[in-house]
Design a binder for these strands. Structure first.
Lengths: 355, 355
DNA sequence: CTGTTAGCGCTTTCAT
DNA sequence: ATGAAAGCGCTAACAG
C-alpha cells in the first residue's frame, strides 16, 4: 500500500501522489536516517554502509515505497521523456519503427511519449505543442513535412530532432530515412523489366501522406522516363489507403484504363485490396494484371499469390533514429559540437508472385 | 527559441530544461509582473486585467514560452498521466483499443503512457514497476492475468485500475471486457450449425495469451457439449500467432486429422494464414474446409473469400475503459464511494464466406 | 559514511 | 487586480 494517510478530504483533482502517500521522507523517518541517505541507498551509491542500506531497503520493501520519477527528474531538470510522432500507430510499419525506438530508448532509461498524427499536419502541430510541455529530451518526427508553426516549436525547444521515413529537403536535425520517390520509381522499373508497359498507380488522395505522394511522383517520373504513360493514377481516398479502398480503386482503374497490365500501390494494404478484388472478379494475377505494394507487411508475405513489394527495415529506422537522438544528447552533454547527420536507409524490391 | 542563456557549461545529462531556458520567471520579468500573474494570465483567470494579460501573452508569444507541464502538475501533485498496457501495439485490435482510450483521455487532458507487454507477464510486471514511478492517475491493463507482484504493485498504487478484453475472476478494479471462452464456444456452435462436425482449433502455444487460451477452452467445452471431438488442437507457436504460423498449422492439422472440415483460429491473422495455405494447396474453402477467425481485422473483411470471424468493438472497449477510469477518478475527487463495475462488451459472430 | 541546505518551475494560499 | 511566501519530492553540493 502506498499508505495514504486518512486525511480529512482527498485532493480535488485525484492527485497521483495524494497527501500522506509514502515519500522518501516517510522511508527516511522509519529507517531513522535522512532522506538523502535513502536517496543514496536507492541508487546503490557506494557511500552508504551496508548496514544502513539494508535497513533502508528493508523499509522500502515493507511500506512498498515507489520512488517518484517526476520529482527525481524534476530536481535533475530532466524529463526522461522522448517524444515520438507517427502518422498512425495502427500501421504495422510504424508500429515496428516505434518498437525499434523503444528498444534503444528503454536501454537508455528514457520513456517514450507517443503521438498519433493521423496523417494530419495540424494534428501533428497540436501534438507537438502538447508534448513539448512535457519537456521531452528529444523529438522524433515522421517525414519532413510540418507546419511552419510546428517547425518553429520543435526548433525552439532546443532539443535534438530526428526526422524519419523520408529525406527532407530542409531537415530540422538528424534524418533516418530513404527516398520514397526513388522507391516509387524502382517499382516501376521493376515492373517494366518484367515486361509490363501499361502500369497504373493507386495512392491516397491528399498530400498529407507526403511519403505516399512521393512514391507517386517517383512512379510518374520513372514511367515517363521509360516512355510509358505516367497518368494512370487512381486516388483512392484519404490516407492511409485501406484494403477496401484498394479494392474500389481496381474498379476505377479498370473503368478508365481497361488495358492496364500492372498496378503499383502506395502500400501493401491497398495492394492486397486490389489483389483480393482481382480474385473476386476472376482476373488472373499476375497473368493479366501484375500487382505491387510497398512496406512488406505480414499480409504481403503470406497471401496467395504472395505480393511483390518494397521492403524497408522499419524497426531499424526506429533503432537508428533513437541512436541518433542519443548521439546528439551525448554530444550535448559532453559539450561537443556535432553536426546533424542524414542516414540513408536501404529499401529493396522484393520480387514475389504477383509481379 | 527557448532561449537558453549562454551559460558556461551545459548540464551533464542534457537537461530538458537547461539552466537559462525561458521559464515563467523570465516571462514575468519581461512583462514587468510577477510569476503569479503570468500563471493567471495563461490560464485565462478572470482576475487579471485585460491590459496585463495582453502584455503577458505578448511576451509569451515573443519569447516562445512553453509552460512546463511537469512543474505545473508536480506542484499540483498530479502527473496528468494514465498508464495503459497492451500485449502488443502492433496488433490492430489493441491499437484500436488504445485509440479509443486516447480519444477519451485526450479530452480529459490526460496523457497516455503506453506499454507493450509482448504477451509476457514478467515484462508486464517490469513495465508496471517503471510506469508507476511516473505516478499515473489510473492504470489500464489488458486481461486479468498478472503476476502476484504486479497485482500488489498496482493495487498498492492506490489509483483506479481497469482491466480490459477479458472478464477476470478476481478483478483489481473496473472491468471492460467479454468472455473469450464464450467467444470460442460461440464459434464452434456456429460451425456446427453450418453442418461442420470435425472441427479443429489453431491457437498459441503458451498460456501467456490468456485470452487465446480461453478461446481454446471455449472451443473444447462447446465441441464436447455438442458431442464432437474437442482434441483437434494445433498449437502454432508463441503468441501472437502469425499468419505464417497459421499456414504451418494447416499442415500440422491435415497431417494429424486429414478429415478436418472446419478450423477455428485464435485470431484472424492465423485464420488468414490457414486460408492462404489452403489456396496454395488447392483446398476448397469453404467447400472442403471452413475457416473462422477472431477479431474482425481489416484483412478478414477484405480477403477472398471473406473470413468468417468474431467482431468486438475494440475502440469501444478503449473508450469505455477510459470512461471507467475517469469515473473512478471523479468519484474519488468528490470523495464519493464508487464500487468498481464490470462492463460486459458484446461480441458477435460475423458470418462471411469462409464458413 | 551521513546530514543539511537550497532549489528545480510552478501553483496554492494568504496579503495587500 | 496583483504580489510574496511556501512547498510539491527529490537530488546536487557542500559540511562534517
Amino acid at each position: 500500500m502506498r499508505g495514504r494517510a486518512d486525511g480529512p478530504d482527498a485532493d480535488a483533482a485525484g492527485p497521483a501522489t495524494p497527501a500522506g502517500a509514502v515519500t522518501m521522507q516517510t522511508v527516511a523517518r522509519l529507517a531513522g536516517v535522512s532522506a538523502m541517505t535513502v536517496s543514496r541507498a536507492l541508487k546503490s551509491d557506494t557511500s552508504v554502509s551496508r548496514q544502513t542500506r539494508d535497513r533502508v531497503l528493508d523499509v522500502v520493501r515493507r511500506v512498498g515505497y515507489v520512488p517518484d520519477a517526476t520529482a527525481r527528474l524534476f530536481s535533475t531538470r530532466r524529463s526522461g521523456f522522448v517524444a515520438a510522432l507517427v502518422p498512425s500507430l495502427n500501421n504495422s510499419n510504424f508500429a515496428d519503427t516505434v518498437h525499434g525506438m523503444s528498444e534503444v530508448f528503454d536501454a537508455a532509461g528514457l520513456q517514450m511519449l507517443l503521438g498519433d498524427t493521423e496523417y494530419s499536419l495540424s494534428r501533428e502541430e497540436d501534438l507537438i505543442r502538447a508534448l513539448l510541455q512535457r519537456r521531452p529530451e528529444a523529438v522524433i518526427l515522421t517525414g519532413g513535412a510540418h507546419s511552419e508553426a510546428a517547425r518553429k516549436l520543435v526548433a525552439g525547444a532546443g532539443v535534438p530532432i530526428v526526422e524519419t521515413w523520408d529525406l527532407p529537403k530542409n531537415p530540422l536535425g538528424d534524418v533516418v530515412g530513404f527516398s520514397n520517390e526513388d522507391a516509387g520509381a524502382a517499382m516501376v522499373r521493376y515492373l517494366y523489366q518484367r515486361g509490363r508497359r501499361r502500369i497504373g498507380f493507386v495512392g491516397g488522395k491528399t498530400h498529407f501522406d507526403t511519403r505516399g505522394t512521393e512514391r507517386r511522383a517517383g512512379f510518374r517520373r520513372a514511367a515517363r522516363a521509360l516512355g510509358l504513360p505516367g497518368d494512370r493514377i487512381v486516388l483512392a481516398g484519404e490516407p492511409p489507403v485501406s484494403m477496401a479502398q484498394g479494392a474500389e480503386a481496381l474498379e476505377a482503374m479498370l473503368a478508365r484504363w481497361p488495358d492496364v497490365d500492372a498496378i503499383a500501390c502506395v502500400s501493401d494494404l491497398s495492394a492486397f485490396g486490389v489483389l483480393a478484388e482481382c480474385q473476386r472478379r476472376g482476373i488472373d494475377v499476375p497473368g493479366r494484371i501484375a500487382i505491387a505494394g510497398f512496406g512488406d507487411f505480414e499480409v504481403a508475405r503470406c497471401c496467395h499469390p504472395r505480393l511483390t513489394t518494397i521492403a524497408v527495415d522499419c524497426a531499424g529506422i526506429g533503432r537508428r533514429a533513437a541512436q541518433a537522438a542519443l548521439g546528439a544528447l551525448d554530444a550535448r552533454s559532453r559539450n561537443a559540437v556535432r553536426e546533424p547527420e542524414t542516414a540513408r536507409i536501404e529499401f529493396r524490391v522484393v520480387a514475389r508472385e504477383t509481379a
